[in-house]
Design a protein around this nucleic acid. Structure first.
Length: 268
DNA sequence: CTTTCAGCCTGACGGC
DNA sequence: TGCCGTCAGGCTGAAA
């Protein structure tokens, strides 16, 4: 499940091999993704130079001479660079061949991802909050946005309007590090504690991005799946197991349809 | 306005 | 062995 660090790692992994090259061919084998892949995209992008790549939230944006392609990896998507003769795997839905020989394949078993072209803005980006690793995202922002909000703090920080790129794994870990219960009302967390939380969100994401850097070579003839799983997770996926800090069995509840694991002693 | 929730999809896994 | 139900989860859009 790619979260922001995995998307950032994917960007850094593929960018050196395809930026500046011309798209020779884009082949869509199965365009039935989260939204249908843009009609006629192969003809639109053929022969266009890929000018630059960037990331916004968990979206990858590929700037072309005319318009841009926006890719989302959804729950199970990945991109990898392969030799063009490599046999296509099951769930390899899109292939992009470049003038320099690079061949990029989009793999997505659950097809929750997206691959769209637009001449102008991609409206999915219209109402996104700030990037977590910028100064726009801060404890003050969390505090200000949460006043009088009854929503639990965990779904509050996972809301893309609050801050982008904080999925279930990193929300759970950041709350544990901050000693805040995930089901606490967002409006009942102090400014001081939101400072700590914002700082921990930045730290866990930054650490994961740095770890991702060690797996970049996997994007060339590798599986294209960066190793977020290598990161030590204190609570995520550990319901019932002992807290790494105090030993008490970790609690597991559901918030906003997502499993939430926390320590009832360390988090208040 | 805020909050909740169904639905999209496949693979892994547990129970029988 | 295989069948069935459940879970995983980002995001949207509709309902409450």
């Amino acid at each position: 499940m790619p979260e922001l660090p995995e998307v950032e790692t994917t960007l850094r992994g593929i960018e050196p091999y395809i930026a500046g090259a011309v798209i020779d061919k884009l082949k869509v084998y199965n365009g039935s993704l989260r939204w249908p892949v843009t009609q006629g995209i192969s003809e639109i992008v053929k022969g266009q130079r890929l000018l630059s790549l960037r990331r916004r939230a968990k979206y990858l944006l590929l700037q072309l001479e005319q318009g841009s392609m926006m890719i989302h990896l959804g729950m199970s998507g990945s991109l990898r660079l392969v030799d063009k003769n490599t046999e296509r795997r099951k769930h390899d839905h899109i292939e992009m061949r470049m003038s320099n020989g690079a061949c990029l394949r989009y793999h997505d078993p659950r097809r929750f991802g997206a691959w769209l072209w637009s001449e102008g803005e991609h409206h999915q980006l219209d109402h996104l909050g700030p990037e977590p690793l910028t100064n726009e995202f801060s404890g003050e922002r969390l505090y200000d946005l949460s006043r009088k909000r009854k929503i639990a703090v965990k779904p509050f920080i996972m809301d893309n309007k609050t801050v982008v790129g904080v999925g279930n794994i990193y929300a759970s870990e950041a709350l544990f590090r901050s000693g805040i219960r995930p089901d606490r009302e967002a409006g009942r967390v102090s400014l001081q504690r939101y400072h700590v939380l914002a700082s921990n969100i930045k730290d866990v994401l930054q650490a994961a991005i740095e770890q991702g850097g060690t797996t970049l070579r996997d994007f060339v003839n590798g599986n294209g799946e960066p190793g977020y799983f290598q990161q030590t997770l204190a609570v995520y996926g550990r319901g019932g197991e002992p807290c790494v800090a105090c030993g008490k069995a970790l609690s597991e509840i559901r918030l906003g349809q997502r499993s939430s694991v926390f320590c009832g002693r360390c988090q208040r």
